[in-house]
Amino acid sequence: MSQSKKTIDFGFTEVPLDEKVKRVKGVFDSVAGNYDIMNDVMSMGIHRLWKRHTIELSGVRPGNKVLDLAGGTGDLTKAFAKRVGPQGQVVLADINESMVRVGRDRMINEGLVGNIDYTITNAEALAFPDNSFDLATIAFGLRNVTNKDKALEELYRVLKPGGQLMILEFSKVTSPAFAKLYDFYSFNILPKMGKVIANDEASYQYLAESIRMHPDQETLKQMMLDAGFDKAEYLNMNQGIVALHRGWKY
């Protein structure tokens, strides 16, 4: 972490702290329209399985209040809204207005209204009272946050006692042989796919770089404990390409 030097990683480059938010916003403004289709192409559809497993493990029930932070185009929000029912509530929150707009339109088009709220918020300063949510999720969003420790503290604050945080994020591949293959795909194929499908090579180059700069499984688990979570654990999926971290507030 180079936060003591007032700079932070943006992919493999160092940028001033306040610059990262603007640059990340630029990336997601650029990819918002093609975000879903690109996710399907890049992961060969496997991101749906990762998200489905996250939803499954959440154990969410009717009446629950859920925060889907960095909710983007609303994959998790959609599933949670069906589960919590009319008595529950799901808040789709994202720092990027374009993503929230795409997510909101998608939810409305699918007839999911009434128990979903939309808000543009910074993960480092959540605009919710203490002890508000039974479940908070952040899927493929934490690596784009400038001050991750602060975001984790905020997530802990807004969770009710007994509440659970789930972080679904790209992580460190556990098998060295597979890691080489994965690196080749990330830095040679992925940006080219971004160019062909979304006409945006640079944004997808950033996505690949930001994954490598994200804390590994054990580091993130320790960060969660340091943020105040009483229990934290993680589950590797597909050799650690993605890890699901879960933290509980007692």
Binding site: I55, E56, P62, K82
Partner: peptide, 29 residues
Amino acid sequence: IISLQICPLQTPLFLIFNDRNIILQHHLQ
């Protein structure tokens, strides 16, 4: 929410009824 334990399956299946949909999941808070 109905917890359905069908022998010989090992784990219960939770059924959540919502509008005209049924949600199936293996975990429940």
